[in-house]
Computed example of a mutant assay.
Amino acid sequence: MSQSAIGEGGASAPLDASATDLSEVRDWLALLKPRVMTLVVFTGLIGMILAPGHLHPVLGATAVLCIAVAAGAAGAINMWYDRDIDAVMKRTARRPIPAGRIRAGSALAFGVVLSVASVGVMGLATNWHAAGWLAASIGFYVFVYTMWLKRRTPQNIVIGGAAGAFPPVIGWAAVTGGVEVLPLLLFAIVFAWTPPHFWSLSLWAHADYQRAGVPMLPVVAGARETRRQILIYTVLLFPLALAPWFLGLAGPIYGAAAAVMGAGFLWHAVRVLREPQDAAGRSLGNDAAARAAFRFSLLHLAVLFAALAVDHLVLG
């Protein structure tokens, strides 16, 4: 620090240092992709709530923490690997690694240490079956989606969607030590939900992906085909989301929520398909329908899982 800063402004130096420290903490937290982590933690927690049996509250909280840390660890490794394409995408250019605030090697070490720690603690706190599912979720996101699929195929989101579908299975396994039909159905619901959710985002972020050379569906197949695929997957998701109620694994609260939210998602998907477009299917209205569909998709999944929990807690 310069002498002038230590002079009249000397009193502010501790505040400046504190602000710098806080900013650095925020950067490390940003590596964990906290927005993604929130949804992962929520679905994992619902899996634990639905599972038969009992887990001590301290061990349950530890299991939820392990799911959160594992998701963040995978996110940190993803940011390390994708630092080159993040640097050329407007949406990601200010992330800590491409912006130069965190060294790539440090981010990788951070992610690897958290990965190992989360799996180890999960195994010791609950059971090694749950720890195995947790390790599989990290490995799938890092090696299958990030390193293999993302830069090679427009099906990256379709296959890679499995990475975000593991948490309810992990939560269930943490309580029971095994997996049954309901958590596998929840896995399938999240798996089918991911393409229309993410493709709605990619419609209005396609220029970023094109600039980075990432073969997202709008870049490879065009906006019109992407709109059609969003509708197709949303139609497939509708009966799949109703399956837990239809099979008697969830009650009427969930059934009603799945029907209403499924109809709402279908309505948004139709709006995306019918949004005013040019000859190539690109929006003439700032992708308003796609943005709305993306926001609704988040609400859709949150309401489905919350309804499962309410149904279970109220009706048993």
Rank of each mutant, 00 (worst) to 15 (best):
M1N: 09
I6T: 11
I6K: 14
G7Q: 11
E8W: 13
S12M: 06
D16I: 05
S18K: 13
D21G: 06
R26T: 12
L29Q: 06
A30G: 10
K33S: 06
F42K: 00
T43G: 07
G44F: 07
I46S: 04
L50E: 04
A51T: 05
A51M: 05
G53C: 00
H56E: 14
V58C: 01
A61T: 15
A61D: 10
A61Q: 11
A63F: 05
A70N: 14
A70I: 09
G72W: 02
G72L: 02
G72N: 08
A73H: 09
G75W: 01
A76G: 12
A76M: 13
I77T: 06
Y81M: 04
Y81Q: 09
D86A: 10
M89D: 01
K90C: 03
A93K: 15
R94S: 14
R95W: 04
I97C: 03
I97G: 08
A99N: 08
A104H: 11
A107P: 06
L108Y: 11
F110L: 14
G111Q: 06
V113N: 09
V113A: 15
A117T: 15
V119Y: 09
M122L: 15
A125L: 12
N127I: 12
L134S: 06
L134V: 14
A136L: 15
S137G: 13
G139L: 09
V142Q: 02
V144M: 02
W148L: 15
L149Q: 08
R151N: 10
T153P: 07
T153W: 02
Q155M: 15
G160W: 00
G160F: 02
P167F: 04
P168F: 06
V169C: 12
I170P: 07
G171I: 08
V175M: 04
G177V: 10
G177R: 10
V179D: 12
E180L: 07
V181S: 11
P183K: 10
L184F: 03
I189V: 15
V190K: 00
P195W: 00
F198N: 00
F198L: 03
W199K: 00
W199H: 00
S200V: 03
L203F: 08
L203Q: 09
D208W: 03
Y209A: 04
R211D: 04
A212E: 02
G213T: 04
V214P: 03
M216A: 05
M216N: 02
P218S: 14
V219C: 12
V220T: 14
E225R: 13
I230K: 00
L236K: 04
F238L: 13
P244N: 09
G251E: 01
P252M: 01
I253T: 08
Y254A: 08
Y254C: 07
A258G: 05
A258M: 04
A259C: 12
M261N: 09
G262C: 02
G262W: 03
G262R: 01
L266I: 15
E275F: 08
D278K: 13
A279V: 15
R282D: 13
S283F: 07
S283L: 12
G285P: 03
A292D: 10
F294D: 00
R295V: 13
F296E: 02
F296L: 11
S297P: 02
S297Y: 01
L298N: 07
L298M: 13
H300P: 05
L304S: 00
F305A: 08
A307D: 01
A307N: 07
V310Y: 02
V314N: 05
